Amino acid sequence: MSPVADPVSRNDSSAIPQAARSAGVGTFPRPPTFTTKEEEREYLKFRLAQAFRIFGKLGYDEGVAGHITVRDPVRPDCFWVNPFGKHFSLIQPSDLILVDHHANVQINESGPNKLLNKAAFMIHSAIHEARPDVNCAAHSHSVYGRAFSTLGKELDMITQDSCAFYKDHGVYRQYGGVVLDEEEGAHIVKALGSKKAVILQNHGILVGTTSIEATVHFFIALEKSCQVQLMADAAAAGTGGKIIKISEAEAAMTYGVVGTMAGGWFSGRPHFQLLEAQEGSSFRFGSGK
């Protein structure tokens, strides 16, 4: 089975908004469909492992910090997460851990390293439980996201790309240390609200969306938007200039093109296409891997 052409996201029955559709001429692709939930599980595990390797290639690793999760389609009360202590660049589908919302690692389904990162569990279990629409969430200690997080502020709408987060990201303006308890996870969820991203003060960035592809795209986009704003702020301060911000109306219009979930899925696909070309491996529909 292969993807069929249709401009909708896998978890959204509505078409890509007209504003986003106007960016292309022709028919947009659609995420794959599956004959069984088990096949969907294998695909999501394959895709999640790819996402980790993409993060590894981009340098979004910092020792053992960082995690990406995806909700399990067979058991929606569980999610897949990386084993604690394995480098992102090495993760394969067979390495992933399946855990429920009570921190119980599902032994039979999980990989050989069943060590669970407690911070990953506290953050992601809270998000997946509070936000049924979030199928994939990612957090890592990326360099520019970390640097920008020290400012404790939202992004300014200064570029077309930053408009993907117009009124769709929050700030958690409190650093409570390493997230090792439920209360801190709840605080992060509250700061995230119904948005797709949150800047964690003195910590880094977090993105949660309807798909692995959209999460990877918007995480990269947020990291780069943080980088651009840091550079623009420094350039303005150094030259005595003033940053030109995008107006509210223009930011809202641009968000309708670059900030949607379906658009995020579409924009995230090239990262996986590149990885598959480099590795010579892609998911074989109907084969279970």
Rank of each mutant, 00 (worst) to 15 (best):
M1N: 05
P3R: 15
D6R: 04
D6E: 07
P7T: 05
R10F: 13
I16E: 13
A23I: 06
T27W: 12
F28C: 02
P29K: 10
R30I: 12
P32Y: 06
F34S: 03
F46R: 10
R47K: 14
L48N: 07
A49R: 08
Q50F: 05
I54L: 00
L58F: 13
G63N: 04
H67F: 02
V74Q: 15
D77S: 14
F79Q: 09
V81M: 00
S94A: 15
S94K: 14
N108S: 13
E109T: 02
L116D: 04
A120Q: 01
F121S: 06
H128P: 12
N135P: 01
V143T: 14
Y144F: 12
F148L: 00
I158E: 01
C163I: 01
A164Y: 00
A164N: 01
K167D: 12
D168M: 01
H169I: 00
Q174H: 09
V178I: 15
E184W: 05
E184A: 11
A186N: 15
H187S: 07
L192Y: 12
V198N: 05
V198E: 01
L206G: 03
L206H: 03
G208I: 07
I212T: 06
T215S: 10
T215G: 09
V216T: 13
F218Y: 15
F219Y: 14
V228I: 05
M231A: 08
A232N: 02
G238V: 00
T239D: 02
I243L: 12
E250C: 06
E250L: 08
W265V: 02
H271F: 15
S282Q: 14
S287V: 14
K289I: 10
